[in-house]
Design a protein around this nucleic acid. Sequence first.
DNA 1: CTAATTGCAAAAAGTTTGCAACCAT
DNA 2: ATGGTTGCAAACTTTTTGCAATTAG
Lengths: 152, 152
Amino acid sequence: MTGQRRLIARVLSEASDHPDVEELYRRALALDAHISIATVYRTVRLLEEKGILERRDFGGGRARYEPTEHGHHYHLIDVESGKVIEFADPEHERLIHEIAARLGFELVSTRLELFGRRRENAAKSAAAKSEQTRSKARGRLRTASEPASVVE
Amino acid sequence: MTGQRRLIARVLSEASDHPDVEELYRRALALDAHISIATVYRTVRLLEEKGILERRDFGGGRARYEPTEHGHHYHLIDVESGKVIEFADPEHERLIHEIAARLGFELVSTRLELFGRRRENAAKSAAAKSEQTRSKARGRLRTASEPASVVE
DNA sequence: CTAATTGCAAAAAGTTTGCAACCAT
DNA sequence: ATGGTTGCAAACTTTTTGCAATTAG
């Protein structure tokens, strides 16, 4: 456990968004100089292999990373703005386990990405009331399919 | 509509798997010589923009393509073998639309990828009976979350 | 001390692009 | 004819790697 790894770990744990490697590199540099981008690449790869990070692809060519959440959450990407909305949904969680089981598999990891366009006359469903209400940056999400944070 | 595009279209329509650009290029070459990989890249990009193809990322660095299915289907990737199992699930379909609506969005596109490990003592659920039953390569899938094709 | 980790720069891999030649309409 | 499409090769971007120097344990 070297200083560089500790530094990257710190940058990651402080991030509430989905930085790509270059962004991680920039943040690490800002926080404490002298680290190489090769190390960042090597470290995220390592952390991904260990199951600590998950690699995402929201389009745009570069891989993005976020800490693995063991109560999963998912992403809705606004195709207009590129903004990413995180959400959790227990029913979905249940369903995918059921699907996997039905196919004879045990779930190791999961990706759900919804790409959508904001609706004009949005939100008249009951659940919509709780929308746009919480948005403390760090404390991630949780609760029945409520939107969580909106981050790039 | 040039010969090359027609050729690529044909290769794609004959594919029941998820080829990457190099694979498409190889197949196109085999089928009828003299086409350049740049054209393949340009064509898949174009078809993706037109909504005819969808780009997938199953890990491994290269983008893979498949025809857009308007009754969606999803992928379960066997982490051990890399094999891809396609499946459809109406309940999931319903749920994601509901989730998007709840967040104020209209769904444009969707990705669900499950990564799983084959279970030893697989399949004792009721639904499991229909498992491993159909596997005609070309005719894609369809029906309530039954496994469809198993392809690389 | 030894094995693991780092920085650097070079290279690989995947994708995009400028441009002149070419083809469909 | 002319505007879109192609091939080629060069360029770009992202990621990986060899190697000597450095550091953790």
